[in-house]
Amino acid sequence: MTSPQPVLRLGALERGRRRAALAMLSPTLAGLVVFFVLPLLATILLSFTRYNLLSPPQWIGLRNYQYLFTQDPKVWTSAGNTLWFVVVLVPVRVLTAMGVAALLIRVRRGSGFWRTVFYLPALVPPVASVVAFVFLFTPGGGPVNTVLGALGLPQPLWFNDPQLAKPSLVLLGIWVMGDVMVIFLAALLDVPRELYEAAELDGAGPVAKTWYVTLPTIAPVIGFAAITGVIAALQYFTEAAVASTVASGKAGAGSSATDVLGYPDNALLTYAQWLYVRGFGSYQLGYASALAVLLFVVAAAAVTFTLRKVKAFSPEEAMS
């Protein structure tokens, strides 16, 4: 909110503009209420009920929460898996993206080619990339294990091994790090050249330049990438669900789709999937709402933190 605009201080004009603003924003405002505020309130209300869509909801007080916190056999497994992705997948992706971007800005010749090579995987539709990875890492004849075998290396079970299923998805996460990489590329190219020259005059080597010039300059970008990564990881669903479905080789006649979620041995069962299984596999919509409320509390904390840290999300800064 900077420059005052004396020319436009006319009352009628001002009113007209407010009316126009309201008209322009009316779909958005309706969307906020109908798609966000009301469902949020409804979720909270539903979390105190037993409801399966077929019989009317039944008020059961805190029973869902009692079950959630003291009896649900998988809620902590799934929350733990999601936390694992937050703690491992996010930093690994950010660091890889930063590293590759740092390598890429040094390349002069054919920079477009190299950038495309590393960005391309991020464009592959997530479902297609997961299906491809599960195939590549199939034990017993899959390309990766064939190559490992030829090199005399051990051939793990990857997506079929409860210990390795999550790390396998991290490999996939690295492969598609292009979306984060592009942001780092832009940021690194924006670091003022004079800063490096000044540092060189002070006798700084490559390490010192990185530490004292590059990192402080791109720190906001690292923060942005990390925070948006955490928020995405909290809702991690598609990659894990598709990996389980494809790797288990099940689904189809004779078994229900949500039975395979989490395969192998619930290693890939994330919180968002557990909510889906309870809500839309077993139709325990009241209980799923309780799970959603817990997710809301955690995500709201992350979002509050984000709003403080990321300048772009704050409205005051932006009205320039």
Partner: peptide, 17 residues
Amino acid sequence: MRSVRRHRLALPAASVL
């Protein structure tokens, strides 16, 4: 950008409540 997903699971009308 893939890391920030959008809300598209929304619903019509106040009939939610």
